[in-house]
Design a protein around this nucleic acid. Structure first.
Lengths: 129, 129
DNA sequence: CAGGATCCCTCTCGATACTG
DNA sequence: CAGTATCGAGAGGGATCCTG
């Protein structure tokens, strides 16, 4: 099921964020390999290079994720009609902006890693007690 | 499977983002109801209020998601030992900061909605041709 | 009222084998 | 090299019933 199904109120206190925007945003960063791959192709990479650099991905998921990213215009796929075939992938401008928009979230995760860790321990201790 | 399994390079061009931070960040916003619920409890809500306001959620997922959020210290759960029981949920400070950190991502989704839409049509047209 | 327990289904993802 | 096709496992999520 897709995140799009949920109906949600605006996030911040102030502004009237359009309904659905949150779901769309989360949909686009979902998937185990989406962001990792998008991040990897900030420099142009060929299929096999990508496969090796992603360490642990299956051919299948690499293909599927790339297709989905290409489909949404977040990566650009370039086929050189040579033999053997050569295909290069690189992030698009919107794709790069998507990556940039994740910076605050990542910063939050780093900042709050100890807090969350602590919260979990406290939760367990309370559970035991 | 968790996003944590993937090994990924830093996101931006510039800084040495700690490995694992990306996965943690994405893990924390994953789940169909996580962010919607977190957003809803920016004002204190009781269990049933929350259930009604979330429109479409099952009791099961409401409980599970709330437990997970409480466990990580993102929402605070307050039990009033009355009869009938009364339990209130409200977002914590870190939780609010997490919501705030999503603003750029949401803004991106809104800005690029037409582009992505167009990219998908173009992709299909190319596919047909 | 605020859950816990159980059953089941869908959808994602991984492993493997085959191809232009 | 750069995929496609097929199968199967597992997690996330929904529906329903039960309880302190």
């Amino acid at each position: 099921m897709s995140l799009r199904d949920a109906a949600v109120a605006p996030l911040s206190r102030n502004e009237p964020t359009r309904p659905g925007a949150l779901e769309e945003a989360l949909d686009r960063v979902s998937g185990k390999w989406t962001i990792p791959i998008l991040s990897a192709v900030r420099r142009p990479l060929r299929f096999t290079q990508l496969e090796r650099s992603m360490h642990g991905i299956s051919r299948r998921m690499l293909t599927l994720t790339l297709r989905s990213l290409e489909r949404d215009g977040l990566v650009v796929r370039t086929v050189h009609p040579t033999v053997p075939p050569k295909v290069e992938y690189v992030v698009s401008e919107p794709g790069q902006e998507l990556l940039d928009s994740l910076a605050p979230l990542i910063a939050w995760a780093e900042r709050n890693r100890p807090l969350v860790e602590g919260a979990r321990c406290a939760y367990r201790d309370r559970d035991v007690a």
